[in-house]
Nucleic acid binder design. Structure first.
Lengths: 210, 210
DNA sequence: ACTCCGATGTTTACGTTGTTCACATTCGGT
DNA sequence: ACCGAATGTGAACAACGTAAACATCGGAGT
Protein backbone atom coordinates (compact mmCIF):
# COMPACT_ATOMS: atom_id res chain seq x y z
CA UNK A 1 0.00 0.00 0.00
CA UNK A 2 2.46 2.57 -1.14
CA UNK A 3 1.41 6.19 -0.77
CA UNK A 4 3.14 6.91 -4.03
CA UNK A 5 5.85 9.48 -3.46
CA UNK A 6 7.50 7.90 -0.43
CA UNK A 7 8.63 4.39 0.31
CA UNK A 8 6.14 2.88 2.70
CA UNK A 9 6.44 0.64 5.68
CA UNK A 10 4.60 0.52 8.93
CA UNK A 11 3.75 4.17 9.24
CA UNK A 12 4.98 5.72 6.07
CA UNK A 13 8.37 7.39 6.19
CA UNK A 14 8.80 7.63 9.94
CA UNK A 15 12.34 8.91 9.68
CA UNK A 16 11.17 12.02 7.82
CA UNK A 17 7.98 12.24 9.88
CA UNK A 18 10.00 12.46 13.08
CA UNK A 19 12.24 15.17 11.69
CA UNK A 20 9.16 17.09 10.53
CA UNK A 21 7.46 16.72 13.91
CA UNK A 22 10.63 17.73 15.70
CA UNK A 23 11.02 20.74 13.46
CA UNK A 24 7.52 21.96 14.31
CA UNK A 25 8.32 21.58 17.99
CA UNK A 26 11.62 23.40 17.54
CA UNK A 27 10.04 26.30 15.71
CA UNK A 28 7.60 26.71 18.56
CA UNK A 29 9.90 26.16 21.49
CA UNK A 30 13.53 25.91 20.46
CA UNK A 31 15.87 22.97 20.89
CA UNK A 32 14.66 22.12 24.38
CA UNK A 33 11.16 21.51 23.05
CA UNK A 34 12.45 18.74 20.79
CA UNK A 35 12.14 16.05 23.38
CA UNK A 36 12.19 12.48 22.16
CA UNK A 37 8.83 11.68 23.68
CA UNK A 38 7.10 14.83 22.48
CA UNK A 39 8.40 14.24 18.98
CA UNK A 40 7.27 10.62 18.80
CA UNK A 41 3.97 11.61 20.41
CA UNK A 42 3.38 14.18 17.71
CA UNK A 43 4.25 11.64 15.03
CA UNK A 44 1.69 9.27 16.57
CA UNK A 45 4.18 6.62 17.47
CA UNK A 46 5.65 5.11 20.62
CA UNK A 47 8.82 6.62 22.12
CA UNK A 48 10.91 3.54 21.44
CA UNK A 49 10.09 3.66 17.73
CA UNK A 50 12.49 6.56 17.32
CA UNK A 51 15.38 4.22 18.10
CA UNK A 52 14.84 2.37 14.82
CA UNK A 53 15.88 5.54 13.01
CA UNK A 54 18.07 7.51 15.42
CA UNK A 55 20.64 6.15 17.80
CA UNK A 56 19.80 8.60 20.56
CA UNK A 57 17.87 11.69 21.47
CA UNK A 58 20.83 13.84 20.51
CA UNK A 59 21.01 12.14 17.14
CA UNK A 60 17.39 13.10 16.48
CA UNK A 61 18.04 16.67 17.55
CA UNK A 62 21.00 16.86 15.18
CA UNK A 63 18.82 15.64 12.31
CA UNK A 64 16.20 18.29 13.09
CA UNK A 65 19.01 20.82 13.35
CA UNK A 66 20.27 19.85 9.90
CA UNK A 67 16.79 20.43 8.53
CA UNK A 68 16.78 23.88 10.12
CA UNK A 69 20.23 24.58 8.76
CA UNK A 70 18.97 23.89 5.26
CA UNK A 71 16.27 26.53 5.77
CA UNK A 72 18.99 28.90 6.94
CA UNK A 73 20.78 28.30 3.64
CA UNK A 74 17.56 29.03 1.77
CA UNK A 75 17.14 32.27 3.68
CA UNK A 76 20.60 33.34 2.58
CA UNK A 77 19.84 32.29 -0.99
CA UNK A 78 16.70 34.41 -1.04
CA UNK A 79 18.65 37.45 0.09
CA UNK A 80 21.36 36.75 -2.45
CA UNK A 81 18.79 36.78 -5.25
CA UNK A 82 18.80 40.57 -4.88
CA UNK A 83 22.53 40.78 -5.55
CA UNK A 84 22.23 41.60 -9.24
CA UNK A 85 24.48 44.60 -9.76
CA UNK A 86 26.17 44.49 -13.18
CA UNK A 87 29.55 45.38 -11.67
CA UNK A 88 31.09 42.10 -10.42
CA UNK A 89 32.86 43.89 -7.57
CA UNK A 90 29.66 45.50 -6.32
CA UNK A 91 27.83 42.24 -6.79
CA UNK A 92 30.42 40.32 -4.78
CA UNK A 93 30.02 42.81 -1.97
CA UNK A 94 26.23 42.51 -2.16
CA UNK A 95 26.50 38.75 -1.94
CA UNK A 96 28.54 38.91 1.25
CA UNK A 97 26.08 41.33 2.79
CA UNK A 98 23.27 38.99 1.77
CA UNK A 99 24.91 36.18 3.72
CA UNK A 100 24.88 38.26 6.88
CA UNK A 101 21.38 39.56 6.39
CA UNK A 102 19.98 36.17 5.48
CA UNK A 103 21.62 34.65 8.55
CA UNK A 104 20.38 37.35 10.91
CA UNK A 105 16.98 37.53 9.27
CA UNK A 106 16.47 33.82 9.66
CA UNK A 107 17.44 33.95 13.33
CA UNK A 108 15.06 36.84 14.03
CA UNK A 109 12.20 35.34 11.99
CA UNK A 110 12.47 31.83 13.42
CA UNK A 111 14.44 31.89 16.66
CA UNK A 112 13.34 28.37 17.51
CA UNK A 113 14.58 27.00 14.21
CA UNK A 114 17.81 28.96 14.57
CA UNK A 115 18.26 27.53 18.04
CA UNK A 116 18.00 23.93 16.91
CA UNK A 117 20.15 24.64 13.86
CA UNK A 118 22.95 25.68 16.19
CA UNK A 119 22.32 22.80 18.57
CA UNK A 120 25.44 21.13 19.79
CA UNK A 121 26.95 23.42 17.45
CA UNK A 122 27.67 20.73 14.88
CA UNK A 123 31.19 19.92 13.75
CA UNK A 124 33.15 21.12 10.78
CA UNK A 125 32.10 18.18 8.65
CA UNK A 126 28.51 18.94 9.58
CA UNK A 127 29.12 22.26 7.80
CA UNK A 128 29.40 20.33 4.53
CA UNK A 129 26.68 17.71 5.04
CA UNK A 130 24.17 17.40 2.19
CA UNK A 131 21.20 17.57 4.59
CA UNK A 132 22.17 21.10 5.49
CA UNK A 133 22.28 22.39 1.93
CA UNK A 134 19.80 24.88 0.52
CA UNK A 135 18.23 24.85 -2.93
CA UNK A 136 21.48 25.73 -4.67
CA UNK A 137 23.21 22.74 -3.14
CA UNK A 138 25.40 24.80 -0.84
CA UNK A 139 25.48 24.90 2.95
CA UNK A 140 25.39 28.21 4.87
CA UNK A 141 29.10 27.91 5.56
CA UNK A 142 29.81 27.30 1.88
CA UNK A 143 27.71 30.29 0.87
CA UNK A 144 29.90 32.39 3.13
CA UNK A 145 33.21 31.05 1.83
CA UNK A 146 31.93 31.36 -1.72
CA UNK A 147 31.18 35.03 -1.16
CA UNK A 148 34.60 35.60 0.35
CA UNK A 149 36.25 33.78 -2.55
CA UNK A 150 34.40 36.05 -4.96
CA UNK A 151 35.74 39.11 -3.16
CA UNK A 152 39.25 37.75 -3.50
CA UNK A 153 38.70 36.95 -7.18
CA UNK A 154 37.46 40.45 -7.79
CA UNK A 155 40.40 42.01 -6.02
CA UNK A 156 38.55 43.48 -3.06
CA UNK A 157 40.27 41.24 -0.54
CA UNK A 158 43.82 39.97 -0.26
CA UNK A 159 43.98 36.20 -0.49
CA UNK A 160 45.85 35.77 2.76
CA UNK A 161 43.14 37.71 4.58
CA UNK A 162 40.39 35.42 3.31
CA UNK A 163 40.39 32.92 6.15
CA UNK A 164 40.40 35.32 9.08
CA UNK A 165 37.90 37.52 7.25
CA UNK A 166 35.56 34.55 6.84
CA UNK A 167 35.83 33.64 10.50
CA UNK A 168 35.37 37.24 11.56
CA UNK A 169 32.21 37.58 9.47
CA UNK A 170 30.88 34.30 10.73
CA UNK A 171 31.66 35.19 14.33
CA UNK A 172 30.09 38.62 14.14
CA UNK A 173 26.92 37.54 12.43
CA UNK A 174 26.55 34.46 14.57
CA UNK A 175 27.28 36.40 17.74
CA UNK A 176 24.78 39.07 16.90
CA UNK A 177 22.13 36.49 16.03
CA UNK A 178 22.51 34.71 19.35
CA UNK A 179 22.67 37.94 21.36
CA UNK A 180 19.53 39.12 19.57
CA UNK A 181 17.50 35.91 19.84
CA UNK A 182 18.46 34.36 23.16
CA UNK A 183 20.77 37.01 24.59
CA UNK A 184 20.54 40.36 26.30
CA UNK A 185 19.28 42.05 23.16
CA UNK A 186 16.32 39.70 22.97
CA UNK A 187 13.95 42.24 24.49
CA UNK A 188 14.74 44.94 21.93
CA UNK A 189 11.91 45.60 19.46
CA UNK A 190 12.21 43.84 16.15
CA UNK A 191 12.60 46.87 13.85
CA UNK A 192 15.43 48.12 16.03
CA UNK A 193 17.19 44.77 15.77
CA UNK A 194 16.73 44.75 12.01
CA UNK A 195 18.30 48.19 11.72
CA UNK A 196 21.10 47.29 14.09
CA UNK A 197 21.79 44.05 12.25
CA UNK A 198 21.89 45.75 8.88
CA UNK A 199 24.15 48.45 10.23
CA UNK A 200 26.54 45.94 11.72
CA UNK A 201 26.72 43.83 8.59
CA UNK A 202 27.38 46.84 6.37
CA UNK A 203 29.79 48.39 8.83
CA UNK A 204 31.71 45.15 9.07
CA UNK A 205 32.04 44.65 5.33
CA UNK A 206 33.06 48.29 4.89
CA UNK A 207 35.67 47.84 7.60
CA UNK A 208 37.00 44.60 6.13
CA UNK A 209 37.19 45.80 2.53
CA UNK A 210 39.41 48.79 3.07
CA UNK B 1 28.63 27.93 66.89
CA UNK B 2 29.85 30.35 64.30
CA UNK B 3 32.78 29.21 62.20
CA UNK B 4 34.10 32.72 62.25
CA UNK B 5 34.18 34.12 58.74
CA UNK B 6 30.71 33.05 57.62
CA UNK B 7 27.32 33.29 59.27
CA UNK B 8 26.29 29.83 60.32
CA UNK B 9 23.06 27.95 60.32
CA UNK B 10 22.21 24.36 59.66
CA UNK B 11 25.00 23.60 57.24
CA UNK B 12 27.01 26.75 57.02
CA UNK B 13 26.27 29.03 54.12
CA UNK B 14 24.36 26.65 51.89
CA UNK B 15 23.49 29.32 49.38
CA UNK B 16 27.16 29.91 48.61
CA UNK B 17 27.99 26.22 48.98
CA UNK B 18 25.48 25.33 46.28
CA UNK B 19 26.84 27.95 43.92
CA UNK B 20 30.38 26.68 44.57
CA UNK B 21 29.35 23.08 44.01
CA UNK B 22 27.46 24.02 40.87
CA UNK B 23 30.45 25.96 39.60
CA UNK B 24 32.72 22.95 39.98
CA UNK B 25 30.22 20.85 38.05
CA UNK B 26 29.93 23.51 35.37
CA UNK B 27 33.68 23.79 34.93
CA UNK B 28 33.85 20.04 34.41
CA UNK B 29 30.79 19.53 32.26
CA UNK B 30 29.20 22.81 31.19
CA UNK B 31 25.74 24.06 31.97
CA UNK B 32 24.07 20.69 31.45
CA UNK B 33 26.14 19.19 34.25
CA UNK B 34 24.68 21.65 36.75
CA UNK B 35 21.72 19.50 37.58
CA UNK B 36 19.82 20.34 40.73
CA UNK B 37 20.30 16.88 42.18
CA UNK B 38 23.99 16.62 41.35
CA UNK B 39 24.65 20.02 42.86
CA UNK B 40 22.84 19.28 46.12
CA UNK B 41 24.48 15.86 46.23
CA UNK B 42 27.91 17.45 45.95
CA UNK B 43 27.02 19.91 48.70
CA UNK B 44 26.00 16.98 50.91
CA UNK B 45 22.39 18.00 51.16
CA UNK B 46 19.02 16.72 49.99
CA UNK B 47 17.64 17.88 46.63
CA UNK B 48 14.74 19.77 48.15
CA UNK B 49 17.08 21.86 50.30
CA UNK B 50 17.99 23.89 47.26
CA UNK B 51 14.48 25.29 47.16
CA UNK B 52 15.11 27.23 50.39
CA UNK B 53 17.64 29.32 48.48
CA UNK B 54 16.64 29.15 44.81
CA UNK B 55 13.17 29.23 43.38
CA UNK B 56 13.93 26.71 40.65
CA UNK B 57 16.62 24.77 38.90
CA UNK B 58 16.99 27.58 36.38
CA UNK B 59 17.41 30.07 39.18
CA UNK B 60 20.31 28.06 40.56
CA UNK B 61 21.90 27.82 37.14
CA UNK B 62 21.63 31.58 36.74
CA UNK B 63 23.36 32.09 40.08
CA UNK B 64 26.18 29.78 39.04
CA UNK B 65 26.32 31.61 35.72
CA UNK B 66 26.68 34.93 37.52
CA UNK B 67 29.59 33.51 39.46
CA UNK B 68 31.21 32.43 36.19
CA UNK B 69 30.52 35.85 34.67
CA UNK B 70 32.43 37.46 37.52
CA UNK B 71 35.42 35.28 36.66
CA UNK B 72 35.07 36.38 33.06
CA UNK B 73 35.30 39.97 34.25
CA UNK B 74 38.44 39.09 36.22
CA UNK B 75 39.98 37.50 33.13
CA UNK B 76 39.41 40.74 31.23
CA UNK B 77 40.84 42.75 34.11
CA UNK B 78 43.99 40.64 34.13
CA UNK B 79 44.50 41.26 30.43
CA UNK B 80 43.82 44.96 30.87
CA UNK B 81 46.59 45.17 33.47
CA UNK B 82 49.02 45.02 30.56
CA UNK B 83 47.50 48.11 28.93
CA UNK B 84 50.04 50.58 30.29
CA UNK B 85 51.17 52.58 27.29
CA UNK B 86 51.89 56.21 28.25
CA UNK B 87 49.96 57.50 25.22
CA UNK B 88 46.26 57.59 26.22
CA UNK B 89 45.17 56.81 22.66
CA UNK B 90 47.37 53.73 22.43
CA UNK B 91 46.30 52.72 25.92
CA UNK B 92 42.62 53.01 25.04
CA UNK B 93 43.17 50.78 22.06
CA UNK B 94 45.09 48.28 24.21
CA UNK B 95 42.23 48.21 26.68
CA UNK B 96 39.69 47.34 24.00
CA UNK B 97 41.92 44.59 22.70
CA UNK B 98 42.29 43.30 26.25
CA UNK B 99 38.52 42.97 26.53
CA UNK B 100 38.42 40.74 23.48
CA UNK B 101 41.43 38.69 24.47
CA UNK B 102 40.25 38.29 28.06
CA UNK B 103 36.84 37.19 26.83
CA UNK B 104 38.20 34.69 24.32
CA UNK B 105 40.95 33.51 26.66
CA UNK B 106 38.45 32.78 29.40
CA UNK B 107 36.23 30.84 27.02
CA UNK B 108 39.16 28.76 25.74
CA UNK B 109 40.63 28.19 29.21
CA UNK B 110 37.34 27.26 30.90
CA UNK B 111 34.76 26.31 28.30
CA UNK B 112 32.48 24.85 30.95
CA UNK B 113 32.49 28.05 32.98
CA UNK B 114 31.97 30.09 29.83
CA UNK B 115 29.04 27.87 28.92
CA UNK B 116 27.24 28.40 32.21
CA UNK B 117 28.08 32.12 32.17
CA UNK B 118 26.17 32.44 28.92
CA UNK B 119 23.35 30.21 30.12
CA UNK B 120 19.94 31.50 29.24
CA UNK B 121 21.90 34.22 27.94
CA UNK B 122 20.97 36.54 30.81
CA UNK B 123 19.06 39.75 30.25
CA UNK B 124 20.29 43.30 29.90
CA UNK B 125 19.85 44.00 33.61
CA UNK B 126 21.83 40.86 34.31
CA UNK B 127 24.68 42.66 32.52
CA UNK B 128 24.78 45.15 35.40
CA UNK B 129 24.17 42.80 38.34
CA UNK B 130 26.69 43.11 41.20
CA UNK B 131 27.20 39.33 41.35
CA UNK B 132 28.70 39.45 37.87
CA UNK B 133 31.27 42.11 38.65
CA UNK B 134 35.00 41.46 38.74
CA UNK B 135 37.50 42.84 41.21
CA UNK B 136 37.24 46.38 39.87
CA UNK B 137 33.51 46.41 40.42
CA UNK B 138 32.63 46.32 36.75
CA UNK B 139 30.81 43.66 34.77
CA UNK B 140 32.18 42.30 31.48
CA UNK B 141 29.69 44.38 29.54
CA UNK B 142 30.68 47.48 31.46
CA UNK B 143 34.36 46.84 30.82
CA UNK B 144 33.55 46.78 27.12
CA UNK B 145 31.49 49.98 27.13
CA UNK B 146 34.15 51.65 29.28
CA UNK B 147 36.79 50.82 26.72
CA UNK B 148 34.62 52.11 23.89
CA UNK B 149 33.91 55.30 25.83
CA UNK B 150 37.66 55.81 26.29
CA UNK B 151 38.16 55.52 22.55
CA UNK B 152 35.53 58.18 21.99
CA UNK B 153 37.07 60.42 24.65
CA UNK B 154 40.47 60.07 23.03
CA UNK B 155 39.11 60.90 19.60
CA UNK B 156 39.65 57.50 17.99
CA UNK B 157 35.95 56.83 17.51
CA UNK B 158 33.06 59.07 16.56
CA UNK B 159 30.49 59.26 19.33
CA UNK B 160 27.59 58.19 17.13
CA UNK B 161 29.50 55.06 16.14
CA UNK B 162 29.98 54.00 19.75
CA UNK B 163 26.87 51.91 20.17
CA UNK B 164 27.08 49.87 16.96
CA UNK B 165 30.82 49.50 17.51
CA UNK B 166 30.20 48.09 20.97
CA UNK B 167 27.63 45.63 19.70
CA UNK B 168 29.87 44.65 16.81
CA UNK B 169 32.79 43.96 19.14
CA UNK B 170 30.61 42.04 21.52
CA UNK B 171 29.05 40.01 18.71
CA UNK B 172 32.36 39.15 17.10
CA UNK B 173 34.12 38.17 20.27
CA UNK B 174 31.14 36.27 21.61
CA UNK B 175 30.55 34.57 18.30
CA UNK B 176 34.15 33.49 17.99
CA UNK B 177 34.18 32.22 21.57
CA UNK B 178 31.12 30.05 21.03
CA UNK B 179 32.30 28.79 17.64
CA UNK B 180 35.65 27.93 19.20
CA UNK B 181 34.36 26.25 22.36
CA UNK B 182 31.15 24.50 21.37
CA UNK B 183 31.09 25.15 17.65
CA UNK B 184 32.70 23.81 14.50
CA UNK B 185 36.07 25.24 15.45
CA UNK B 186 36.10 23.26 18.67
CA UNK B 187 38.38 20.59 17.26
CA UNK B 188 41.08 23.03 16.17
CA UNK B 189 44.26 22.86 18.29
CA UNK B 190 44.47 25.42 21.06
CA UNK B 191 47.49 27.41 19.82
CA UNK B 192 45.81 27.85 16.46
CA UNK B 193 42.68 29.17 18.14
CA UNK B 194 44.74 31.57 20.23
CA UNK B 195 46.43 32.93 17.14
CA UNK B 196 43.17 33.15 15.25
CA UNK B 197 41.45 34.88 18.14
CA UNK B 198 44.23 37.42 18.55
CA UNK B 199 44.27 38.08 14.83
CA UNK B 200 40.51 38.60 14.74
CA UNK B 201 40.47 40.93 17.72
CA UNK B 202 43.28 43.05 16.33
CA UNK B 203 41.89 43.00 12.83
CA UNK B 204 38.52 44.09 14.10
CA UNK B 205 39.81 46.99 16.15
CA UNK B 206 42.01 48.11 13.26
CA UNK B 207 39.00 47.96 10.98
CA UNK B 208 36.76 49.87 13.38
CA UNK B 209 39.25 52.62 14.20
CA UNK B 210 39.91 53.76 10.68
C1' DA C 1 16.19 30.58 81.34
C1' DC C 2 12.48 29.01 78.79
C1' DT C 3 9.45 28.99 75.18
C1' DC C 4 7.94 29.50 70.74
C1' DC C 5 8.22 30.74 65.88
C1' DG C 6 10.32 31.16 61.65
C1' DA C 7 14.09 29.59 58.94
C1' DT C 8 16.36 25.64 57.23
C1' DG C 9 16.86 20.74 55.89
C1' DT C 10 14.65 15.80 55.12
C1' DT C 11 11.48 12.35 53.47
C1' DT C 12 8.44 10.77 50.46
C1' DA C 13 6.00 11.03 46.44
C1' DC C 14 4.55 12.32 41.62
C1' DG C 15 5.06 13.10 36.78
C1' DT C 16 8.34 13.46 32.92
C1' DT C 17 12.37 12.28 30.50
C1' DG C 18 15.90 9.03 27.85
C1' DT C 19 16.79 4.34 27.17
C1' DT C 20 16.50 -0.82 26.93
C1' DC C 21 14.57 -5.29 26.21
C1' DA C 22 11.34 -8.72 25.11
C1' DC C 23 7.61 -9.12 22.17
C1' DA C 24 4.38 -8.20 18.15
C1' DT C 25 3.57 -6.97 13.49
C1' DT C 26 4.52 -6.15 8.76
C1' DC C 27 7.29 -6.16 4.38
C1' DG C 28 9.88 -8.27 0.67
C1' DG C 29 12.37 -11.88 -1.46
C1' DT C 30 12.45 -16.88 -2.48
C1' DA D 1 3.04 -19.19 0.82
C1' DC D 2 6.56 -18.90 3.78
C1' DC D 3 10.60 -16.94 6.57
C1' DG D 4 13.87 -13.65 7.99
C1' DA D 5 14.66 -8.92 8.49
C1' DA D 6 12.85 -4.55 9.28
C1' DT D 7 9.88 -1.87 11.93
C1' DG D 8 6.72 -0.57 15.82
C1' DT D 9 4.80 -1.61 20.83
C1' DG D 10 4.65 -2.28 25.89
C1' DA D 11 6.53 -2.46 30.10
C1' DA D 12 10.22 -1.34 32.87
C1' DC D 13 14.26 1.36 34.96
C1' DA D 14 17.06 5.14 36.59
C1' DA D 15 17.53 10.07 36.80
C1' DC D 16 15.50 14.39 36.79
C1' DG D 17 12.64 18.76 38.64
C1' DT D 18 9.30 19.80 41.91
C1' DA D 19 5.89 19.83 45.77
C1' DA D 20 3.96 18.77 50.34
C1' DA D 21 4.20 17.18 54.94
C1' DC D 22 7.29 16.63 58.47
C1' DA D 23 11.54 17.37 61.47
C1' DT D 24 15.02 20.25 63.56
C1' DC D 25 17.60 24.12 64.72
C1' DG D 26 18.59 29.10 66.20
C1' DG D 27 17.45 33.34 67.95
C1' DA D 28 13.89 36.88 69.83
C1' DG D 29 10.92 37.99 73.50
C1' DT D 30 9.21 37.43 77.78
Amino acid sequence: MEAGNTRSYHHGDLDAALVAAGYELARAGGADAVTLRATTRRAGVSPAAAYRHFSSHEDLQLAVGARAMADLARSIEVHQADATDPDPAVRARQRLIAVGEGYIGFALDSPGAFDIAMFGLFTMEHAFAPETMGDTGRTPFQLLTDAIADLVAVGLLAAERAEPAAITCWSTVHGFATLATSGPLRTHPRPELDALGARIVRGLTDALLR
